[in-house]
Design a protein around this nucleic acid. Structure first.
Length: 517
RNA sequence: GCGGGUGUAGCUCAGUGGUAGAGUGUCACCUUGCCAAGGUGAAUGUCGAGGGUUCGAAUCCCUUCACCCGCUCCA
């Protein structure tokens, strides 16, 4: 839907996150976790409607990725099998993946420049004597180094530094008192650097009744490693051959520094990940194919507008495992809280053979773990294309996209879900609660319920029932009226237009089935 | 992590030291002839939490938690 809005016509007011959050709570899409105790930062619960919405999203993904036929770039159907690996794994997994080494670094914040630095990357320059100013800069940053030296010389009112007096020390080795008289990089005041703090991005737990260093375990920060560690099991137990994929939906946990923006950055979240194993030389072709197919998929389930974009990463923002390779791209959605920018829904990355090699090395078997290609009679570590999507972020995007203010209707707002995603597919109502109408409506309801998530409502005025269904995002409301009771028909009210059409009762199951995917 | 804002009924909010309120929604009954109609009635509160000041605190002070906004961060 591309719309060129003439200046004379007021554009729709931007959606406010606050309103969406309020509707989610009011209608039972999403609640704060442990709300009666004041909540807990970074955790959310899904209510009845939200659970259905998220489940519809996950089911659509699973169905389209694993179950239904998927035609690959060469025109033949591709193989993807499912997996459900455990959340807690042998901690060596996270050493091999790089999560233990890479994310345990103490960090330092600067209150003045609002920057955050790795403590072991900072060095301080200055005289040893008490009370003297020290200047910190990032190691190997020549520009900052020169600036620090210049500032120090100016402070000490001299032209050049005295190598005997002015020493260089690693930031983690200085005392709190010294830190208090240190000027941070790009800062002017002293004492704006915080002490080095450990950011443990992985949740730790203990496995077994005895709690000691041997019992340390982690809640997985991504589902991917369960796939990689099972790669050999799947190959041995399934008749898959490269190229093929392993798909998994599951919870992951990250002790985010700043959980924010409703469910967007939660500490507990659900991922929908595919690791697609390929011959290294076909990486480019598969990478592009997955990127484009995944983008089209999000469009298909309702994010069809200009709020969805595909963004190729720049080289300098690539993850450690993707420095070489075909590339990384994000499928991003313009959330109300990121606008005019975008937030990531799914990343498609060429992870090369980083993970399989890392596990092969760390488990001690090395090259013996290489995949054997019967056809070509060669051994190699397959490369991986990883489309990794966030189920909670996807659900949030569906909610934001669906939220449509409409001051002309009673609810003031309706949720314009794609029918395949809608938690409730149809509402079935008797126009009035008498004259035999409820009985007819209930028969229809029970009939539809054999196949669809539908709701029956006989209470209160018809307008209120339509309004409630608008907020739940129900695409169709089927009402049995007096005319219909005699002619064997019902009116079907369309959520988006509020238009009605008359449909024969015996046609309604088909009518609904054709429209809800 | 920094700064700003908010927190009182399911929701939106009023209430600035003296009996916790309104609108709306919810529920029940009546009514009903297609978009939150009308009538009658009912239920609903750790005033975010903890501490302090006070004869008395939703209100003043301190601490803390949570959410929203702007930075920061985001393997």
């Amino acid at each position: 839907m591309s719309e060129v809005t003439p200046a004379s016509i007021p554009t729709a007011a931007p959606k406010k996150m606050e309103d969406i959050v309020a509707l989610c709570r009011r209608r039972g899409f999403i609640f704060q976790s442990s709300e009666i105790y004041g909540g807990i930062n970074g955790f959310w619960d899904y209510g009845p409607l939200g659970t259905s919405l998220k489940r519809n999203l996950k089911n659509a993904w699973w169905s389209d990725v694993v179950e239904r036929e998927l035609i690959g770039p060469d025109g033949t159907a591709i193989d993807i099998v499912g997996l459900d690996s455990s959340i807690i794994m042998n901690p060596k997994t996270w050493v091999a993946s790089g999560h233990v080494g890479g994310f345990n670094d103490p960090m330092v914040d600067c209150r003045e420049s609002k920057s955050r630095y790795r403590a072991d990357h900072l060095v301080v320059l200055g005289a040893m004597e008490a009370g003297a100013r020290l200047y910190a800069y990032i190691e190997n940053d020549d520009e900052q180094k020169a600036q620090a030296a210049k500032s120090l010389a100016k402070y000490e009112k001299r032209d050049t530094l005295d190598p005997a007096r002015h020493v260089l020390r690693a930031f983690p080795t200085i005392t709190a008192e010294e830190r208090a008289r240190t000027v941070g990089p790009n800062a002017k005041e002293v004492g704006t650097l915080t002490e080095a703090r450990q950011f443990n991005l992985m949740f730790e737990t203990n496995c077994g009744a005895i709690r000691d260093e041997n019992s340390l375990a982690y809640l997985r920060p991504e589902t991917a490693q369960g796939i990689f560690t099972n790669f050999w099991n799947v190959c041995d137990s399934t008749r898959v051959r490269v190229p093929f994929g392993i798909a998994q939906i599951g919870k992951a946990f990250r002790n985010e520094v700043t959980p924010r923006n409703f469910t967007f950055r939660s500490r507990e979240f659900e991922q929908m990940e595919i690791e697609f194993f390929i011959r290294p030389e076909s990486a480019n072709e598969w990478y592009k194919w997955w990127r484009d197919w995944r983008f089209a998929w999000w469009q298909k389930i309702g994010l069809a507008g200009e709020n969805l974009i595909l963004r190729e990463h720049n080289r300098d923002e690539l993850a450690h495992y993707a420095k070489v390779g075909a590339g990384t791209s994000d499928i991003e959605y313009r959330f109300p809280f990121t606008a005019p920018g975008y937030g990531e829904l799914e990343g498609i990355a060429h992870r090369a053979d980083f993970d399989l090699k890392a596990h092969a090395t760390h488990c001690g078997k090395g090259d013996k773990m290489r995949y054997f290609d019967q056809e070509k009679n060669e051994r190699y570590f397959p490369h991986v294309i990883e489309p990794s999507a966030g189920a909670d972020r996807g659900t949030l995007a569906l909610l934001c996209e669906a939220y449509t203010a409409d001051p002309t209707r009673a609810s003031g707002v309706f949720m314009k879900f794609n029918p395949r995603m809608a938690p409730v597919k149809a509402g079935v109502f008797p126009l009035v609660n008498k004259d035999g109408l409820p009985e007819i409506a209930e028969r229809l309801f029970r009939d539809l319920r054999k196949q669809h998530a539908v709701e029956f409502d006989e209470k209160q005025s018809i307008g209120k029932r339509y309004a409630r269904m608008d907020e739940a995002g129900t695409p169709f409301c089927i009402t049995i009226d007096h005319d219909g009771a005699t002619s064997g028909t019902a009116t079907v009210r369309h959520r988006d237009t509020q238009a009605q059409e008359r449909v024969a009762l015996d046609q309604i199951p088909q009518f609904v089935a054709e429209r809800v995917g």
